[in-house]
């Protein structure tokens, strides 16, 4: 029940001359849902791609520990990773129009996972694909199976992606901004679907997003990232009701509320991807609680149930 699916520590990802991710760690257990929140350029997607070693060529990744499904994959061959991807860990991407192959019918794109990982024959795979389509909420799966991605609406396309991620019966699912490209009503529906599926199959779930509000009620734990580093890591309740890190506080405060005309805005501009120029805490330039010690990178300090990287809290 508490089997650890992913255990990664000391993750640093470098691309070109920039450092996209610095010293990130994460563990996800079966049945657990973790949310990773950060603005664009915070390195959250890069970290997740590195977690399944799907980073683009020319990217350097270093890890102190990288255990996936109980196996040490730090020096794993590509072949080994291929057997894990889709089967043990599946990923759902942000923009289903570009993430799905426009020239293959959706049924094929789901069935190929079944044929690859579950060793099903073609006919069985297609039958199973239809069942999956129905499960994710696409009516009349038999007809839709033969359609192409551009023939579906955005929400339906994302359901197709979810179905293909489900096909290998993975233990861990990583959803990288799965609802960002869709409109609000559809977002809620899809979020519900993803959570439902997770609970049903007792999967581990990592949900990457920039929308803190969306994750409330969905995830058990939240990781807040900024400029490639973890700022705060806490159980959901603790984070939403008692945020520690100044960045988290500011993020929560800036969420639109019905009882307010305007939300306070975080001062300054977000850090560019690849980190900031000056050493120390990357949020320091915009932080209201800044002290001299912030010139050094703060370690994650335990405060109550949360971990926060902030000298001002020590």
């Amino acid at each position: 029940m508490n089997e650890t699916l992913l255990d990664i520590a000391g993750l640093t990802v470098r691309f070109g001359g920039t450092t996209a991710v610095s010293d990130v760690f994460l563990t996800v257990a079966r049945g657990e849902a973790v949310g990773i929140v950060g603005e664009s350029g915070s390195g959250k997607s890069a970290a997740m791609l590195a977690a399944i070693r799907l980073h683009p060529p020319g990217t350097g990744i270093e890890t102190e520990r990288h255990v996936l499904g109980g196996e040490d994959v730090r020096n794993a061959t590509e072949g080994k990773m291929r057997s894990l991807r889709g089967r043990f860990v599946a990923m759902v991407f942000q923009d289903p129009l570009s993430a799905l192959n426009p020239l293959l019918p959706v049924g094929v794109q789901i069935a190929e996972v079944l044929m690859r990982h579950r060793r099903l024959g073609r006919r069985m795979a297609h039958l199973e694909a239809r069942a999956l389509l129905t499960r994710v909420g696409i009516a009349d799966a038999a007809a839709h199976e033969h359609r192409y991605p551009h023939e579906f609406s955005g929400g339906q396309r994302q359901r197709v992606m979810i179905a293909s991620a489900l096909a290998g019966d993975p233990a861990l699912r990583i959803a990288d901004e799965p609802t960002t490209a869709l409109d609000v009503t559809v977002q809620a529906q899809l979020a519900r679907l993803i959570v439902q599926l997770q609970r049903e199959r007792q999967m581990g779930l990592i949900w990457v997003t920039h929308d803190l509000a969306l994750m409330a009620g969905i995830v058990d734990r939240v990781v807040v990232m900024y400029a490639g580093r973890i700022m705060e890591m806490a159980p959901a309740g603790a984070l939403y009701f008692a945020p520690r890190h100044p960045y988290t506080v500011a993020l929560l405060a800036s969420l639109p509320r019905l009882d307010r005309k305007r939300s306070p805005v975080l001062p300054g501009a977000p850090a560019p991807p690849g980190g900031v120029a000056q050493p120390g805490c990357p949020f320091a330039p915009r932080c209201s609680k800044r002290i001299d010690k912030c010139d050094e990178v703060p370690p994650l300090l335990e405060i109550g149930e949360s971990l926060a990287a902030c000298w001002a809290l020590a």
Binding site: L54, G86, R87, F93, S98, R116, G168
Partner: peptide, 12 residues
């Protein structure tokens, strides 16, 4: 992007 997805599915 769809190639990245295909690789993420662990296809050969």
């Amino acid at each position: 992007d769809y190639i990245r997805t295909a690789r993420a599915k662990g296809l050969l």
